[in-house]
Design a binder for these strands. Structure first.
Length: 793
DNA sequence: AGAGCGCGGGG
DNA sequence: GTGTACGCGCTCT
């Protein structure tokens, strides 16, 4: 007698058992974690023959890897197409059989051969991650940490919600000042934070911590806590790139088996930049922030402190982590503050995860992909996955990915982008920023923009600028999918008016995100549904619409400072902030449908710099001062690590002097003074250090940059420089290219740093475009003699 | 000018 | 895992 369970799928994988692909769905019932297996799903793909003949089908069936062939009809961009559905024994045979059949003289093309097997299963079986399903089958014995339920059948179930157990992790490592990630150094603390467990593990006597003899025992305990806490979600901040790879590397050193997977699989970071744990969803909050919500944040960076501060109103503990190594060595009593700092990081990561989870959950359900994938995908991939999920409903064929050559061709072909109101470089006061993102979805829907409706033979209604037209009679697949998103969202908004439910809100956000990403997807070169003509006409129409808003803004007494694809920066002039609000309301009242101008924020000061070698303002490169006196810096590369401390410091001070203090003379004097100090070698060499990461094995470098040259000498001295090492170097005086003069701090000895290099390549580039805005040519200010010298010789 | 390479997040 | 991010800017060749 079979059992029945209500199951919430969280993640999916598959294994080969007895020459058969078996799906392993990991998730939970209302009570506990469970693994559901299913063995009746067969891999397949499609081939398009010249003509379908019984002989061809018979011939294909002789193939040892092919288990069945069926004729099917699908729609391919509006046209019907007859195909053969070719089933193989194993998923990995699909690409193999596809390559073989592609060479067959009677076969024109192959389709859907690169849809991941687990993805195919979810789509075809209509199994939606996180949505409960009724599973009929039996509990069986298997080598697993959770009960395994062998499924015979899946049925729909009542859509109820369940909670997930989250465990947040964060490590602190021994990392003496100035060094990058170095897995040769030990992990000092591991914090874990969940609903029933909030603890810091360490191996020195620190109050309120779980103290171990050594790092190895601490790591062993880390594994135990995961086993005891039984999280469904393990979260961290940049845990894909730091915490987990670090833990894996240290465990490897001690030959410690990190078999945390629910099938006893070992945690590994081999050959991938994300880390998957079988049966436990590893959510790296940073990935989701960076890919999905980053653009909507006020903060210009994605550091944990900034993001938590903005989303939670909670900060990291204000402690200088650079001092940890020294305090550790001296057994300082202040170590408990570092433990508290460590725990705080897991706490805010836990809270961020909880806060963002509804959005991720709804995206996961709407797009039909597991949370693991959702939290790591960029907009275009989210859109593509959503469209792929919709193909079944419309019987559409999924277009193939394209080859490298086509990709290059697509990338070469450009079209006029979104409207860019060229900012006049300048320092402005009272700037209001508006977001105009729902413009493009409306255009795609109302103008039926899609590849299948492009230049139809039945209607002719040209778009003035492009002389193109789109069918008015037959709706294209893509506009249909997009309109469905918009309609669903409109209904949700009605519901939200009555019931301000967090999940409905998240659903609405997910749909908004998809709708707003649709246009970008059409022009995204690797897109399966890429359509140059569609993208080009969307922007052409967009420019028309936006320009009319800009005209209106100007007529209302605002000056437009800057505008690009999705935002407009207005200078208030004599008008007030309230009038800006009124203006937005007035525009919104006129806009049709869901078209909407969002008020993004108000900035008392804003600085726009010019693009390189141009008097036109650079796109997405500006610094603004918000109402709380914080600088919002966008697009300046100097904030990065591979600039010297001195250059970063000078840039920040100059921006502060211009935006906060509004004192350009002071800024110029400051730069001149710093240049003089650099020239006189009054700045300590430490401030001149440029840190660049060695990303691979030293032998594998073709071109030898300054950091590689320094690393080569380190190797000669017998030091180990594994990939990931940050090479700190200083450019010393002398002749030859930069590489020949790059030295580590130790190698500097009595040598002097090359003042000219730092002035020309670090300091001036970090401020020249900023100061150019206020009419200062810093190069001339700093090097006034040059022109005179030329004059006299 | 084109190719090669590193940046972000973490400590 | 039916696999291999992204877009920009610097340095070397």
């Amino acid at each position: 007698m079979p059992d029945r369970i209500i199951f919430y799928p969280l993640d999916v994988t598959y294994k080969i058992r007895n020459n058969h692909a078996v799906i392993y769905l990991y998730g939970k019932t209302a009570e506990q974690r469970v693994c559901v297996t299913y063995a009746q799903f067969q891999p397949y793909f499609y081939v398009e023959p010249q003509t379908i003949t019984p002989q061809l089908i018979t011939e294909l069936k002789i193939n040892p890897e092919i288990v069945d062939v069926q004729a099917v009809t699908k729609k391919n961009l509006g046209r019907n197409i007859t195909l053969l559905k070719v089933f193989t024994q194993l998923p990995q045979q699909v690409p193999f059989v596809k390559s073989k059949l592609q060479r067959h003289p009677q076969i024109k093309n192959c389709y859907e051969y690169d849809i991941l097997f687990t993805r195919r299963f979810l789509m075809d079986m209509r199994i939606t991650p996180l949505s409960p399903i009724q599973v009929t089958g039996n509990f069986v014995n298997d080598h697993s940490k959770v009960q395994v339920f062998q499924a015979e059948q899946f049925d729909s179930a009542e859509q109820t919600k369940t909670d997930y157990r989250i465990l947040s992790i964060d490590i602190e490592t021994y990392n003496p000042k100035g060094k990058g990630m170095d897995v040769e150094q030990p992990i000092l603390m591991i914090a874990l934070y969940g609903d029933d467990y909030k603890k810091v593990l360490t191996w020195k006597n620190i109050p309120d911590c779980e103290v171990f003899q050594n790092e190895q025992q601490m790591l062993q305990r880390f594994k135990e806590v995961i086993e005891q806490q039984k999280p469904e979600i393990l979260t961290g901040y940049y845990s894909d790139g730091f915490d987990l790879p670090y833990i894996i590397a240290r465990a490897k050193k001690y030959n410690l088996n990190l078999d945390v997977g629910l099938d006893y699989s070992i945690l590994t970071d081999e050959k991938r930049d994300d880390i998957k744990i079988t049966g436990i969803v590893h959510l790296d909050v940073f990935q989701f922030v960076k890919h999905v919500i980053g653009r909507s944040l006020k903060s210009g960076n994605y550091k944990l402190d900034s993001v938590a501060s903005e989303l939670l109103g909670e900060r990291k503990h204000p402690i200088d982590i650079e001092n940890l190594a020294a305090e550790w060595d001296s057994n300082s009593s202040r170590l408990s503050q570092f433990a508290a700092y460590n725990l705080q990081d897991t706490k805010i990561t836990f809270q961020l995860c909880k806060k963002l989870l509804p959005n991720m959950e709804e995206l996961s359900k709407i797009i039909g992909l597991p949370l693991f994938d959702i939290c790591r995908m960029s907009f275009s991939r989210l859109v593509e996955s959503y469209i792929m999920n919709q193909t079944a409903q419309y019987n559409e064929l999924i277009p193939n990915k394209i080859d490298e050559q086509t990709m290059r061709t697509r990338r070469m072909k450009t079209y006029a982008g979104g409207f860019v109101y060229q900012p006049t470089p300048g320092l402005y006061e009272n700037v209001a920023v508006f977001d105009f993102r729902s413009l493009y979805p409306t255009i795609i829907i109302s103008h039926n923009i899609s590849p299948s409706s492009y230049k139809c033979s039945c209607c002719y209604d040209v778009i003035a600028e492009t002389k193109d037209w789109f069918c008015k009679k037959e709706k294209g697949f893509l506009p249909t999918v997009l309109e469905d998103i918009v309609t669903r969202r409109a209904k949700l908004k009605q519901l939200l008016k009555k019931d301000n439910n967090i999940m409905l809100e998240a659903q609405s956000n997910a749909l908004k995100l998809l709708a707003n990403s649709f246009y970008g997807y059409l022009g995204f070169a690797p897109a399966r549904w890429y359509s140059f003509e569609s993208a080009a006409n969307v922007t052409a129409l967009g420019r028309k619409y936006i320009q009319s808003v800009i005209t209106e803004a100007e007529q209302s007494g605002f000056s437009v400072t800057y505008s690009d694809t999705d935002s407009i920066f207005l200078r208030l002039g004599n008008t007030s902030k309230e009038e800006a609000h009124t203006f937005v309301e007035r525009i919104n009242a006129k806009l049709q449908g869901i078209m909407e101008l969002d008020y993004e924020g108000f900035y008392p000061a804003a600085l726009f710099v010019s693009a390189k070698a141009s008097t036109i303002g650079a796109k997405k490169k500006y610094a603004m001062l918000n109402e709380h006196g914080q600088l919002k810096i966008r697009g300046f590369e100097t904030v990065r690590r591979n600039w010297s401390i001195i250059a970063k410091q000078i840039q920040l001070r100059v921006l502060e002097m211009l935006l906060k203090e509004k004192d350009k003379e002071k800024a110029v004097l400051y730069v001149k003074e710093m240049v003089r100090a650099v020239r006189a070698h009054k700045i300590p060499a430490e401030q001149m250090i440029i840190g660049t990461q060695l990303t691979r094995a030293i032998e594998s470098y073709g071109s030898i940059g300054p950091h590689v040259a320094v690393a080569q000498r380190m190797v000669q001295k017998g030091m180990s420089v594994p990939p990931g090492t940050i090479i700190n170097f200083i450019v010393a005086e002398g002749s030859g290219v930069v590489r020949e003069r790059a030295c580590s701090l130790e190698e500097m000895g009595k040598k002097l740093y090359d003042a000219n290099y730092y002035i020309d390549h670090q300091i001036i580039p970090s401020v020249d475009r900023i100061l150019a805005v206020v009419g200062v040519d810093i190069k001339n200010e700093v090097l006034p003699q040059k022109s005179l010298q030329n004059f006299f010789t």
